[in-house]
């Protein structure tokens, strides 16, 4: 089967479809929570797509939104419980933002647009790819913010101290929330310029 790679680049859910920005960017001040968040979204997105696709013919259309919400929130709670049990440190940082995965527009969007009308396996792949595409942006933003804002990556210092001695300073602005938006805006710019060149 061919992998639907579109979401990783030209159909990226955050950059092109403007979905799911909500709960995401607030956790990108550091790389580690951003990656954990990205993985959580991927898991929830993939499995909710799979489950909804499996039961798609039994769902009464009138209550399909409620059924979707129920499935998604169950998965989110399961993920949240696992995070609290196995990566407590990170789960403390993510706090309510894990819960907000429920209202992440990517997930509901993919359920409506794809899982309700496709076979389980392609739905699963679609969910996973969209989750990963979302995660990619989160990771890039998290990476830049942590590197430039705190001079570390994954909590390990990476900027050599000789550079600090030479007068280099961490850019405190990067840690502040608004910078996440400005970085995403710039990513969109880069992507769009590439696209128009390709044409």
């Amino acid at each position: 089967m061919k992998l639907p790679l579109g979401p990783l680049s030209k159909d990226n859910p955050i950059l092109v479809q403007v979905l799911g920005v909500c709960s995401a960017l607030a956790v990108t001040a550091q790389l580690k929570p951003a990656v954990v968040m990205a993985l959580s979204v991927t898991v929830v997105c993939a499995f909710s797509n799979l489950i909804i696709s499996l039961i798609r013919n039994t769902i009464p259309p009138r209550i399909r939104i409620i059924v979707q919400l129920l499935v998604v929130s169950t998965l989110v709670i399961v993920v949240d419980q696992f995070l609290q049990a196995y990566v407590y440190e990170v789960s403390k940082m993510l706090s309510v933002f894990v819960g907000l995965i429920i209202t992440n527009c990517i997930i509901m969007g993919r359920l409506e647009a794809f899982a309700l009308s496709h076979e389980p396996l392609p739905s699963f792949m679609d969910g996973m790819m969209n989750g990963l595409g979302y995660g990619l942006v989160l990771a890039i933003v998290g990476c830049l913010r942590e590197l430039l804002g705190s001079g570390t990556l994954w909590n390990h210092p990476v900027i050599p101290s000789s550079l600090y001695a030479a007068g280099y300073l961490n850019n405190g602005l990067m840690i502040l929330p608004p910078m996440a938006l400005i970085l995403v805006g710039s990513l969109i710019w880069i992507l769009n310029s590439k696209k128009s060149k390709a044409k």
Binding site: G185, I188, W189, S193, S196
Partner: peptide, 14 residues
């Protein structure tokens, strides 16, 4: 051109 639409929207919000 590349910044039009959503790109600039994010930056303004920031």
């Amino acid at each position: 051109k590349g910044l039009q639409g959503n790109g600039i929207a994010y930056i303004i919000t920031g």
